[in-house]
């Protein structure tokens, strides 16, 4: 379970990231965090992977209070959470295979395990035929699928997708969401951050709505209300 307990993040005395957010996300849940640009959705993701520290409140993941997590423990935290970014964040000088394998290599996984798992994950996202290509040789949708494969490959219990369809056309966006749904069905908690109204409305899952850093709605089977 992921818990945000009355979390506030101030970037300076006037700039609010999120304010008094209290949120509990259950294991194996699929949750959408929605809201317009600049409402604090990405701040929540950054707080979750300890890229930012809360100004007030506490964040607990699976019983682990990461509010004041020491810098040395951050890599361990990030290895347990898969993150998919809007701009893919792929390593440009590594191939598709190497990008995905990298997430396992940083964990110290044995080479034979990497050689067996990476092709399987690439098959799941439909890129097994393009594993030797570089990111620049792929379409946006394909790059996002590589990003998902990398986030998945070390078997995280939580997958955070921050605007994963932001740079994609409707068809590719639908593909990515389908992959996220499948991942959730395998038992991974999925936290989808988006401002795509159509996608949220068709998902019919729990929707948390943020407005100016504050949670204004939290509904099971909810819709994009802003």
């Amino acid at each position: 379970m992921i818990e945000f307990r009355n979390v506030t993040k101030m970037y300076d005395s006037e700039t609010v990231g999120v304010k008094n957010v209290t949120l509990a996300i259950n294991t194996k849940e699929f949750i959408s965090i929605v809201g317009q640009s600049g409402t604090g959705k990405t701040t929540l993701v950054k707080l979750l992977i300890a890229e930012e520290r809360p100004t007030h409140g506490r964040i607990v993941i699976g019983g682990w209070d990461i509010t004041d997590i020491p810098s040395a423990d951050i890599p361990s935290l990030r290895r347990q959470i898969g993150v998919v970014f809007q701009d893919y964040k792929l390593l440009p000088k590594k191939t598709v295979y190497e990008n995905v394998a990298f997430a396992l290599e940083v964990c110290g996984a044995p080479s034979n395990r990497i050689r067996s798992i990476v092709p399987q994950v690439l098959k799941i996202v439909g890129l097994d035929q393009k594993q030797h290509r570089y990111p620049r040789q792929l379409s946006g949708g394909e790059q996002q699928r590589v990003s998902i494969a990398r986030a998945l490959v070390h078997g995280p219990k939580i997958l955070v997708a921050d605007e994963p369809t932001g740079n994609l056309d409707a068809l590719n966006a639908r593909d990515i969401i389908d992959i996220l749904i499948r991942i959730n069905e395998f038992g991974t908690t999925v936290l989808l951050v988006t401002h795509n109204r159509d996608i949220v409305n068709t998902l019919k899952k729990r929707v948390v709505t943020l407005d100016q850093g504050v949670v204004v709605a939290d509904k099971e089977g909810g819709k994009y209300i802003l």
Partner: peptide, 16 residues
């Protein structure tokens, strides 16, 4: 610099 940021975000230690 971007690559360094990406490596850190997928869980690489400073040393790695």
């Amino acid at each position: 610099r971007d690559e360094i940021g990406i490596m850190k975000r997928v869980g690489a230690t400073n040393w790695f």
